[in-house]
Design a protein around this nucleic acid. Structure first.
Length: 101
DNA sequence: CCCTTGACGTAAC
DNA sequence: CGTTACGCCAAGG
């Protein structure tokens, strides 16, 4: 794994403004790693302890089971509330937003 | 070198 | 909503 890649991902995550959220896929894209969302998860799990990783959720607004509790708690501290285990689209920054009509 | 495991994503049933 | 299948990729057995 390139340190370069790791740093870019870390930078993107660190740049997410408080009160807003993003997704693994989006972070990957912004970091120049299209389609490598999984990589982002890997990186956050290893070198993301000191980052606002709680602002990063899955594309559908849910979070992985083992971090769900802490995730919800940290977000709540920023004024974001999880509804039925998922995050309302109103709080998603640049996430999905497909099918509107 | 092959196989398994994930903080993932999208499409199809 | 839930499961399958596939695509993607790094790390550890």
């Amino acid at each position: 794994m390139d340190e370069e890649t790791v740093e870019r991902v870390r930078a993107v995550v660190a740049a997410i403004p408080p009160g807003e959220t993003s997704t693994y896929g989006e972070v990957a894209e912004q970091a120049g790693l299209p389609g490598r969302a999984r990589l982002v998860g890997k990186i956050l799990s290893e070198d993301g302890a000191d980052l606002p990783w709680h602002r990063v959720l899955r594309a559908n607004g849910t979070s992985a089971p083992h971090i769900a509790h802490e995730q919800a708690e940290r977000l709540r501290a920023e004024g974001i509330l999880m509804v039925d285990g998922r995050l309302p689209r109103e709080h998603r920054r640049t996430a999905d937003r497909r099918r509107e009509s």
